Each structure stands twice: as structure tokens, then as C-alpha cells.
Simulated assay, not measured.
Amino acid sequence: MSVGLFADRPLTRPVLVIASGNPRKVEEIAGMLEGLHLDVRPQPEGLEIEETGTTYAENARLKAETVARLTGQWALADDSGLEVHGLGGAPGLYSARYAASDPERLARLLRDMGETPYRSASFNSAMALADPRGSTVLEAEGVCRGEILTAPRGEGGGYDPLFWVREAGLTFAQMPQHQKVRLGSRGKAARALAPDLLTLLQVPLRR
């Protein structure tokens, strides 16, 4: 089944739907794929997919397959989370649900960590590409290792002001976007997918 959102647009380039309701994430992933000459589109407005997986990869597959089936197009999904080693890997899969807003998430993270000197952490991302039938055909993962600061630095969303990357000497919130894409887990996953993604999208599916 296809949705009307896609019916009136010419297929001059391979269509790829980003399976996310987060405009910031859609824009970020579209930017990572800019050089691939794809027609990148957001998922249908108002669509909400319950993330019931027990891993980032499972959630990415779930979102990609659902959006592919609904739109009849190729769909790419990402699932990411912050894992703080001193908190046993929390917030992990529940990073977005750790608190109600970005400031509250930062405040809770600092409160939960307290004065511990063990502040190593990692951002983890999994990406999945589903074909128009709704089957996952390509997957990749990326990891960025860093530390959690005791106070935010820089302006940015999510956990970016607290996540400090030794290689850059900056938090994600202080980095220019191109540097965040190069070092971040989502960018690493996207680059791992890129060599095969375009090839798959340009080959017609056998009926």
C-alpha cells in the first residue's frame, strides 16, 4: 500500500524515505546522504511507530520495515542511544525517554552520575534499510566513544552538551556539523551503509 504523499512527485532519482518522525534526525541523515543523489523524503506525517525492540538494530529494522510497507518505497531507519558505563549502560535504548525534555534529561543524567570519576560513555547507532516490500536488506552500526562532563558545554539538543570527545577536544554541541558527522556514531553507520545503499536502490526489484 502506498500513501498519497508520494503519488504526485516525479521519480527522477531513487526515492529513499527516512523512517523517523524527528525533523532534526531526518535533516541530519539527509545531509549525510547528500552526495548519493537520492530523493530523500520524510515518513508520512502523523505516523508513530512503537519501538518494542530489545536492541538498537531491532528498533531500526522495525521502523524501516513498517515505513517501507506503508509507502511502497525504500526506507532507512536509525536507532541510537547514549550508554554511560558507570550507569550500567543506561539510558541506552531509553535515551529519548529518560526524561520529558532535553534539559530534564541532562539534569537527570548529571544527578544519576553524581560525583563518580568513572564517566566514560558511548553513543551507539544502528541503521537498517528496508526494500519496498518491507524486508530489511542492509544493516550497519556505528559507535563513538567519549566522556560525560560535569556541566554542559555548548548549545545543542539531546545529550550533546555533556558528551565530550577526546579526539576533538570538544563536546558534540561545540562541534561544527561536519565534524560531528565524521566522529559521531550515526555518521559512521551511514558511511558503512553508503557503498551498498545506492547500488541497491538503483537495481529494480524482481517481481
Rank of each mutant, 00 (worst) to 15 (best):
A194R: 05
V40T: 13
L11P: 07
E58A: 15
T136Q: 06
A190I: 13
L47E: 13
E115N: 11
L16P: 12
H178T: 11
T150N: 07
I18D: 04
G21F: 03
M175R: 04
R186C: 09
L205V: 10
G86S: 13
T66A: 15
L170F: 01
K25W: 09
A151G: 10
P14I: 06
Q179V: 15
C144P: 05
E45S: 14
V181N: 15
D196G: 06
R105C: 04
E155P: 00
P103F: 08
P204S: 02
G134S: 10
G134V: 11
M175D: 07
A168Q: 10
G154C: 08
P176R: 01
G86D: 03
G146M: 02
R61S: 09
P176D: 00
K188A: 11
S122G: 08
T12K: 04
T54N: 02
R41W: 14
G72D: 07
L106W: 13
L109W: 10
L70P: 07
A151I: 08
R166T: 15
G146F: 01
G53C: 02
E115W: 01
S125D: 00
E65F: 00
D196I: 05
A173Y: 05
G146D: 04
G142A: 10
G169I: 00
V17A: 05
G31A: 05
R166V: 14
S95A: 11
R105S: 08
T171Y: 10
L106T: 11
P10N: 03
L11Q: 12
R133K: 15
F123I: 07
G72T: 09
A192D: 11
R97I: 03
A30V: 07
E48D: 14
A168R: 08
L197T: 05
V17P: 10
I49C: 09
M32W: 11
V15E: 04
T55A: 00
T171L: 12
L93S: 00
D160G: 07
S122V: 11
T66R: 14
P176F: 02
S122M: 11
S80I: 07
R9M: 09
A75S: 15
V137H: 04
I148A: 12
G72V: 11
L76H: 08
K63D: 03
G154T: 06
P14G: 05
L183F: 00
V181K: 14
Y159S: 04
F6M: 09
A130N: 05
G89A: 02
V15R: 15
E28V: 02
S101F: 12
K25S: 11
Q43R: 12
E28A: 12
E139L: 13
L38D: 03
V3A: 14
A128V: 05
R13D: 14
R133L: 15
E141I: 04
D79S: 08
R207H: 12
L201V: 06
M175Q: 06
P44H: 04
L110A: 09
E28T: 05
F172A: 10
Q177L: 15
A60R: 01
N59G: 04
A140N: 02
H37K: 13
L11E: 14
R182L: 12
E139T: 15
Q174C: 01
L87R: 08
R186A: 08
S80T: 14
S95I: 05
K63C: 08
G81R: 02
